[in-house]
């Protein structure tokens, strides 16, 4: 994030949420802020969560196989962002997500 010197009263909020799949991964985020104007307000936030054993078993117990369950959970997680994308892109992003997830378990 870079705020130029002439950007009077500018405002920024960066959110960086990570969802971990499995126990062999981690997330490292470096929010980068460069502010050239004293009247600006900048905020950043980062969260990390993981798909819980409970969520996964809950889906499986309702007959949803593991891979499909992860797809459902990830799509739910990313829904807020996906909803803001233009239609064509949202469909693409959803497909992309499910392809990336294929074979990510087991």
């Amino acid at each position: 994030m870079r705020v130029a010197a002439k950007a009077e009263n500018s405002r920024n909020y960066s959110q960086c949420d990570s969802l971990l799949l499995g126990d062999k991964c981690g997330a490292h985020t470096w929010p980068y802020v460069e502010c050239g104007n004293e009247s600006s307000i900048l905020e950043h936030e980062a969260t990390t969560s993981k798909i819980s054993e409970d969520q996964l078993f809950y889906c499986q117990q309702r007959g949803i196989p593991t891979e499909k369950a992860i797809g459902l959970i990830v799509n739910g997680y990313a829904k807020d962002v996906l909803n803001k994308l233009p239609m064509e892109f949202a469909v693409e992003a959803q497909k992309l997500l499910s392809i990336t997830l294929e074979g990510s378990v087991g």
Binding site: Q55, Y58, R62, P65, L72, I73
Partner: peptide, 27 residues
């Protein structure tokens, strides 16, 4: 597998409801 058992008709109601954020009841 747990999902096969479920699809064979075994259903478990959990002690505490499990939430999946962003996933509607219908979905």
């Amino acid at each position: 597998s747990p999902e096969d058992r479920a699809n064979e008709g075994i259903f478990l109601s959990f002690q505490y409801p499990v939430e999946i954020p962003g996933v509607s009841i219908q979905n």
